[in-house]
Simulated assay, not measured.
Amino acid sequence: MTSSPTPSSAPRRALLTGAAGGIGWGIATHLAELGYALALSDRSSESLAPLLTEVTGTAADVTCLPADLTDPQSVTAAVDAAVARFQGLDVVVNCAGVLKDARVETMTAATFQQVLQVNLIGMLNVTAAAMPALRRSGTGRVISLTSRAWLGNYGSSNYATSKGAIAGVSRSLALSLAADGVTVNCIAPGFVETPMSNSLPANILERVRRSIPVGRVGRPEDIARTVAFLAAREAGYLTGQTITVCGGRSIAGSMR
């Protein structure tokens, strides 16, 4: 284990991928409110600009680092830039992901591979690049967004595969990094209210809502609060786990 962990009074330093998306945005704003130093990453500076404006002045420090997660060199450059700016890194939140649904008989190999490349290989590229800094932290945290869909979702074989693989590889990484004080956990959101989900037909949204035992769809802040818990220095005894944040839908029946 590292002999020089960051002081407990210092702001936590986090790299967040997929920051411009609905859930990523919620995570970023919540961590900013908690005083984190944030490196926000997405595909372009333009997509991150409104979020940068929102969290500037709230976060301890903030920078935008666009990256192509399928390109290891692009990822390494972004991670190195975050480490240089913050003089280290404590938390990685792998939130980036793509969804390209199709039934197996109509899904092309290229579509299947694209989803795996972004969702799974992208997560591994980011985590691998950040490992040295996370080890030096002494309380490093890797938090990856899987999905309730990994339990099985009609028409989402590629997405479910990628998200299930994230859960599996995170358990292996947890074993590899535990002795260095680094925990590795996953969050599997259920149906969360985002601009993308709100584009669904009203009757589908109502059917989804009725299928959730707590009686409402999730909000980005529900996921963000779980991220904050796992990212805390005090969460060092929880590793290799997947927390399903779905309002009980994963234990309920099918949509009515």
Rank of each mutant, 00 (worst) to 15 (best):
M1T: 15
M1Q: 14
M1A: 15
S3F: 15
S4Y: 14
S4F: 14
P5R: 04
P11K: 02
P11A: 04
R12C: 08
L16P: 01
L16N: 06
G18R: 01
G22Q: 03
I23G: 03
W25H: 13
T29W: 09
H30C: 12
E33W: 10
L34N: 10
G35M: 10
Y36G: 00
A37T: 04
A37Q: 04
L40M: 04
S41H: 11
S44I: 06
E46L: 03
S47C: 14
A49V: 07
A49K: 08
P50Q: 08
P50W: 04
P50C: 09
G57V: 10
T58F: 06
A59Q: 03
A59C: 12
T63G: 13
A67L: 01
D71Q: 07
P72C: 13
P72S: 13
Q73A: 15
S74D: 06
T76G: 12
A77R: 10
A78P: 01
V79T: 06
D80K: 08
A81Q: 14
A84Y: 12
R85N: 12
G88A: 10
G88S: 11
C95E: 10
R103L: 14
R103P: 10
V104K: 11
E105I: 11
T106P: 11
M107D: 03
M107Q: 06
T111M: 08
T111P: 01
F112E: 03
F112I: 04
F112S: 03
Q117L: 11
N119D: 11
N119F: 04
L124D: 09
N125W: 05
N125E: 10
A129D: 01
A130I: 07
M131Y: 14
A133G: 07
A133C: 10
A133L: 07
R141S: 03
V142H: 03
I143N: 02
I143Q: 02
R148T: 09
A149W: 00
N158S: 07
Y159T: 02
A160M: 09
K163A: 05
K163P: 04
G164A: 14
A167W: 09
A167R: 10
G168Q: 09
G168T: 05
S170M: 08
R171I: 13
S172N: 14
L173D: 03
S176K: 14
S176W: 14
D180T: 13
G181W: 00
T183L: 07
T183F: 05
C186P: 02
F191I: 15
V192A: 01
T194Y: 09
P195W: 06
S197N: 15
N198C: 15
S199L: 08
L200E: 13
N203Y: 13
N203R: 15
N203A: 14
N203M: 13
R207S: 13
R207C: 11
V208Q: 10
R209W: 10
R209A: 10
R210F: 05
S211W: 00
I212S: 03
G215N: 05
R219Y: 10
D222E: 05
I223L: 08
I223N: 00
T226Y: 11
A235R: 00
A235Q: 05
L238G: 09
G240S: 01
T244A: 06
V245R: 06
V245D: 06
G247A: 08
S254L: 15
